[in-house]
């Protein structure tokens, strides 16, 4: 039977959970630090984290080599955001997970570096939702508060300029996908250089 269709073992569960937590911890910490500056936070932070995290994701998928690994990771990620109050990110990440599982559904695709690269680049792109969706959901509240505090319309609008100006949107899309893509290449390189050789795959 193809490895990808085999039953999950205790070891698979524990490995998935540990590596997912590592991914999530790095993502949250980098995002939190980057929050200090709007530009870094909204434009660059996702690219940074997705670049750093790519090897971890590649290792996780290759090590377990079964279906639903990405789904579990996305669900834990969504639950972590739910606990922080961003409930809408749970369905969002479950949806992302479904798309990823669909791409990786064919037996053997978890061993196909090209498919993994596509998935991770897509995840990088969609991860922008972490910044974008809160703005969408809480803009009313913020806008009312900003208006009543006497802020200028231009000042308020400036906050979302990265998500409203087509040039910036394009830049963010290209930058995060490129970072995810480059991260994937690094992931593939580390898999070849270290993890295959270390006998853990």
């Amino acid at each position: 039977m193809n490895q990808q269709l085999k039953k999950w073992t205790i070891r698979d569960v524990i490995t998935t959970v540990l590596l997912s937590m590592l991914l999530i911890a790095i993502q949250l910490i980098v995002n939190l630090i980057c929050m200090a500056n709007d530009f870094v936070s909204m434009v660059l932070s996702i690219g940074f984290t997705m670049f750093i995290c790519a090897p971890i994701y590649f290792l996780m998928i290759s090590r377990i080599n079964k279906r639903f690994v990405t789904m579990i990771y996305m669900m834990i990620l969504g639950i972590v955001f739910l606990l922080m109050g961003n409930w809408y990110l749970l369905p969002y990440f479950i949806l992302t997970g479904l798309i990823c599982e669909w791409i990786l559904w064919k037996p053997g695709s978890t061993e196909d570096p090209k498919r993994l690269t596509i998935v991770w680049t897509l995840v990088s792109l969609l991860y922008n939702g972490v910044n974008l969706l809160p703005i969408w959901f809480f803009w009313d509240t913020y806008y009312a508060f900003a208006k009543s505090s006497g802020m200028q319309q231009s000042y308020i609008d400036a906050y979302v300029r990265y998500y409203t100006a087509p040039g910036w949107i394009l830049f963010i899309l290209i930058f995060t996908s490129a970072a995810g893509l480059l991260g994937s290449f690094m992931g593939r390189r580390l898999i070849r250089k270290h993890f295959k050789k270390a006998g853990v795959l």
């Binding site: 070891r11 490995t15 540990l18 590596l19 971890i56 290792l59 993890f195």
Partner: peptide, 8 residues
């Protein structure tokens, strides 16, 4: 990561 796998 290697340590993580070992712990798992």
């Amino acid at each position: 990561l290697l340590r993580c796998l070992q712990i798992a």
